Simulated assay, not measured.
Amino acid sequence: MSERDVSNTRSTAALTRTVAALLLTTVIGSCGTATGQTDAETGGQVEVIEFAVVTDQWAVLDLGTPGVSVGDMDVYSGNGVKDGRSVHGGGSCQVIHVEGDQVDTQCVITMEFEDGSVTIQSVWRKGASPLDMAITGGTGAYSNARGVVRFWDIATPNERMRAEITR
């Protein structure tokens, strides 16, 4: 295995940990409580959630050329529990561009709550921090959801997130 393949394999492993952490952090974080703040511009209720990241499970799919290449995927799922409330979710990140050591992925996560779901997505360049993921929609109580989920210290023991969900 060449030095570049070893580096790409390590990059894929780091990306995999990050993606799994993104999912479970968001899943666990979504069990938080609404702050009662109001979004002045839209009149919607803003729910602010902050948590540390916990990783559950994931799989790395090397789908094209051996090593990191366009089309490779990390697929993940997780469960979170806080104050007796549980949440389940899952998603994937797919490599969309590789140039040298720079690896760009398109990540999509869906979180299932008792009263609906929320979907977030973003393009993420491996190693970048912080990462902002857009809340792109939802179902049930979250059918009009919008906002941003921000992650820091991705793929480290100190990874954390903050979600601002407007409904």
Rank of each mutant, 00 (worst) to 15 (best):
D74T: 10
A21L: 04
Q94M: 12
Q102M: 08
A40D: 15
Q102L: 09
V98S: 03
A13M: 07
D62E: 12
V123M: 14
A52F: 08
Y142S: 06
E50N: 09
S129K: 02
T110V: 11
S92A: 13
V46E: 09
A20E: 14
M161R: 05
V103H: 14
V54N: 07
E50I: 01
Q106W: 06
T33N: 09
A14D: 10
E112S: 08
G116S: 01
S143C: 09
E41M: 13
G78R: 00
L63T: 01
P66W: 00
I154R: 03
G44Y: 14
T156K: 02
S30I: 01
G67I: 01
D104F: 03
R17W: 01
S11T: 08
G78V: 04
P130R: 09
G100M: 10
S7E: 13
D132Q: 09
L22Q: 06
A59Y: 01
F151E: 08
L23W: 02
H97Q: 07
R125L: 15
S30N: 15
S117F: 04
V46R: 11
L131P: 03
A155G: 05
V81R: 12
A34T: 03
L24M: 04
Q45K: 11
S143D: 13
I109K: 02
M111H: 09
T119P: 00
V54L: 10
G127F: 02
G138V: 06
D104Y: 06
L23E: 15
V48E: 04
N144W: 00
V68M: 09
E99V: 10
T119K: 03
V103T: 12
R167S: 04
R125H: 14
T12N: 04
L15W: 02
T65R: 14
E41T: 11
F51A: 10
L22P: 00
G84S: 07
T65S: 13
H88G: 12
V149A: 13
T9A: 11
V70T: 10
N144H: 11
T156Y: 00
T136G: 05
E159H: 06
M73T: 13
T16L: 03
Y142I: 01
T166K: 10
N79A: 06
G36S: 04
V68Y: 01
E112L: 15
G147N: 04
Q121T: 00
V95L: 07
T156L: 02
P130K: 10
T33A: 13
S2R: 09
M133N: 03
D132T: 05
M161F: 05
V81C: 05
T105G: 08
